[in-house]
Design a protein around this nucleic acid. Structure first.
Lengths: 219, 219
DNA sequence: CGAGGGAAGTTACCACGAGTAAGAAAGTGC
DNA sequence: GCACTTTCTTACTCGTGGTAACTTCCCTCG
């Protein structure tokens, strides 16, 4: 819409099918373009801008990917895949230890920092009726995590029914921490990751201690 | 705009200053109307609808409260205040124990469930440039929690520098768990709260155990 | 007591973005 | 050669946030 300034100017091209056969613009090409636009212009990227970056027009985007929510979901898949890769590489086949938990968290935080605006686009609302879309997209991280937790708890002889709650809780914790780290340059991902690992570790491994220990906490 | 259907119908009132002195529409009246609209029509409530519910027009809303983001922030203040009240009442002056932690979490979850659409409105994007607004608004819960954590850790002789990370992390955990509970009717707030308390408790109270215990976890 | 100025709202508008309908050019089959 | 299909573009509708311009009332001052 921004290049349609002069009505008097003759159109560079009349509408119709392009000359050289099919426009070879696949779904992935559109999504690549979306990522470029978001990285360049920020998280409030319009479908028009994405289409322009891909060298096509809006209906192509709708045909190849879908609505804006679909674009966000597709990009969420990409981002969570990247986070999984980073996390796996950070763990490097080590067993599940406190320090590997910290590495896992740190890898997630750093991936978000590296894809700051993509993260904001993906977690950023679209208040439609699908404000629950954020959940749908979080589930891309939640589902494998819940599965891993469940397997591990089961093998360790611990109650596996906590897997879902914990997975949602941990993903939410990571998302909020990421948002915080993104927003405040003073926050150091390594330190934050270590502190969150400290918070989670003892609960994860099923440490027990006598209940009802009063510390005189006043919220 | 929805009641302006008939152009032929004479206006009920010409523009201008109202007859009976000042229109007694305070900021709180507007915010009350906003809550009613959101509760009735869902989280995707427009400023027009809010104004209509308050019996005024859009510019009044902008004068009394501000932009849409300001409305969301103001409503976030109200919601977080309500959550704090519910949590305090659930704790009832008990000390900080595992079961009181579970009560705290459960109170939060139930408050969100009771104000489902308000929660969705408040946490629901508005991708402007202030997608970080979600963080700003989360800080209404984070700040007091961080303060409490810091005081408590200090008095208990534990490292207080974890307070910020933990507060952001816990608020994120609560928000995501709330979203999940809202979306899936099968999730029981009491059970989820207990499970999350289980996850957090041992880390919060500073349980120590020999590091590097391998459980052969494979993410 | 009448005119001017400010206070307080309303109408009407703009900008902009999501999503879609209608139409035009290139290719395809008979 | 002509209808038909495919594939794309243009141009539109619709809803919403935000604002400008204008209208009316009241209060004060000469």
């Amino acid at each position: 819409m921004s290049q349609n300034d002069g009505v008097t100017r003759p159109l560079t091209r009349r509408p119709g099918r392009p000359l050289g056969g099919q426009l070879d613009v696949s779904r992935d090409v559109v999504l690549d373009a979306a990522e470029r636009v978001i990285a360049r212009d920020g998280a409030n990227a319009s479908i028009d801008a994405i289409a322009a970056e891909a060298g096509v027009t809006k209906p192509i985007v709708y045909d190849r990917v879908g609505s804006r929510a679909d674009v966000a979901t597709a990009l969420a898949e990409r981002l969570s895949e990247r986070m999984a890769v980073a996390a796996r590489s950070a763990l490097g086949g080590r067993g599940f230890t406190r320090s590997s938990l910290a590495s896992f968290i740190e890898a997630n935080l750093r991936t978000v920092v590296d894809h700051r605006d993509l993260f904001l686009y993906v977690t950023g609302g679209s208040t439609d009726q699908t404000s629950l879309g954020r959940l749908v997209l979080a589930e891309q991280s939640v589902t494998p995590l819940a599965k891993a937790l469940q397997n591990w708890r089961q093998r360790a002889g611990l109650d596996p029914s906590v897997a879902d709650s914990w997975a949602y809780g941990m993903v939410g914790m990571l998302q909020m921490a990421s948002l915080w780290v993104i927003g405040s340059p003073s926050a150091n991902p390594r330190v934050v990751a270590d502190q969150l690992a400290e918070l989670l570790w003892y609960g994860l491994v099923g440490e027990r201690r006598p209940d009802e220990q009063s510390n005189n906490y006043d919220p």
